[in-house]
Simulated assay, not measured.
Amino acid sequence: MGWMENYRSHAIWDAVDRTKGRLGELQDAGELVGDPDHTEMLEALLARLDGMRDNPDITISQTSLSQVTQYVEFIHGSLPNTTSAFTGNYSGYSFDSNAQIVGAWPQPWPAKIKNLTSQIATVQSGLTAARENLATLDEKFATTDTAIVDYEAQQRAAAEQLVARVQDQVIEVARGVEALSTTAETQKGRIDEAIAGFQTKFTAGEDARKEAWAKQLNSQQDEAEAHTQRMEEHEAKSVKVLQAVGANSTATDFGTYANEQNKAATTWRSIAAAVFGVAGVWFIASSFPWYGEGATGWEAALARLGVTAAVAGVGAYAARESSQHRREERRAKQVQLALTALEPFIANLPDTEQKDIRAAAAQAIFVLRPEEPSNEVAGGDYIELIKSLVDKVPTRSP
């Protein structure tokens, strides 16, 4: 069975499923006990492991998978008390040590963008809700316009009917004007007053309807502007999440490179120690009287010193290689530290200063430089980088 089959069939994935399911059931039932921060940390660790299920990586050893499996089983056994997974100690492993192990694993791109997908889905949901609100407003506006037109038509029809009745009455009054002149004049005055009063009420109602319509339109415009502002805030948050994910990913890559350099330095150191040991044993053994029998003194000394020098030369080469790998490890660790601390360090600074600091950091870290001499203080360039970043922070009065 190859490494990929071993990876996919490992017991860690079953343990993660059971632990996540148990944690979700207890959380839905409100039966979890312990610090809520501990619950969030455990959920984050399990989510990280679940995201790596379908993304095998040959650099993740079976030993580290088995070690993390033991801790996941310990978490499952500690529920519903999530704090026990932090205060307890299963086979000598704590949450911090296991989180460091999982954090050192190469994280695949699908798992890296998982949180970004969630943020994008939230923004899209907000946009959909805004579109629905705008459609509802359009329907309300159309309904209101129709109601106003209908009301105006009814009022006009009523006015026309009233005018027609008044005209009929005027005709009847005109026919009897000779006998009822005084009554006709009085009736005419009452009709004029009725028409004037109706016109006054109609005008006042029309003004009130226009004012209400203007207020409603302004209210809907304010609401639309508020939705737009919230969408811009979501966009800004998404950009910050992208920046943080990119910085953390690069820092993780430098951490992986530092670990590789550490292993290479240790290997070369072991080779150098072994070769120097052989040279020492040879030099001591060749000093005994039985060595060099049948040869003159200078011939025996030449053979002893020549072999010792040759073997010691191989050991010196191995020691030099170990020193070079150790120097690369220190450089990578310093870069990892600078990248990890960069975003939290500049989070509360103005945007212009954040851009300047990021540019300075990128120039100091990623611009190619000549080989450093062996006697240089470890991490000198990055110490200067950190000092320069601190100098860019504005002084604030107490």
Rank of each mutant, 00 (worst) to 15 (best):
A360D: 04
A265W: 03
D138P: 01
R53Y: 06
W213R: 15
A47W: 06
R327W: 03
W213A: 12
Q155E: 07
A47F: 05
Q229H: 10
R230T: 15
A135E: 14
Q220F: 07
N6D: 07
F345K: 10
G379I: 09
N115Q: 14
A285E: 04
R330F: 01
F283A: 02
L180C: 10
A29T: 04
Q169P: 07
A129K: 02
A164S: 14
S97Y: 04
V311M: 06
F141H: 06
V72A: 08
G277W: 10
H76K: 02
A264R: 06
N262F: 12
R304S: 07
D222S: 08
G197H: 06
G294V: 14
A129F: 00
G21F: 15
A295S: 07
A310H: 13
I12C: 02
H234P: 07
Q221E: 08
T128P: 09
G34M: 13
R331P: 07
F345P: 01
E178H: 03
R53K: 02
E223T: 13
K333P: 01
L302N: 14
S397P: 13
L217K: 15
F366E: 11
T256P: 12
Q70N: 09
R48M: 13
G77A: 03
A362V: 06
V393F: 07
G51K: 06
S388V: 06
A196I: 07
N55L: 14
I12N: 08
W105Q: 08
R358T: 00
A111T: 11
D35Q: 10
K263F: 05
E139A: 13
H76P: 03
R358C: 14
S118C: 04
R22M: 10
E139H: 03
R230D: 03
Q243I: 04
V367R: 11
T296V: 05
F141I: 01
K140R: 14
I60Q: 12
I365M: 15
R175W: 08
S323E: 02
Q154R: 13
G379Y: 06
F198V: 06
V281W: 12
G246Y: 00
G277E: 01
L79H: 05
G246H: 04
H227R: 14
P350H: 08
S9M: 09
Q199E: 10
A341K: 01
T63L: 13
A378E: 12
A159T: 01
E232I: 00
A309E: 09
A285I: 12
E328D: 14
G30I: 01
L127P: 05
Q354R: 09
L49T: 07
P398F: 11
L180Q: 06
A47I: 15
R326M: 11
E225G: 08
A295W: 05
E211S: 13
N115G: 04
D351C: 05
I346H: 10
S270A: 15
E225T: 08
W105C: 00
R304V: 11
K20H: 02
Y257N: 09
A174H: 15
Q161M: 05
A378Q: 07
A129E: 07
D351W: 07
G88Q: 03
A184N: 00
K140M: 02
A212R: 05
D14T: 11
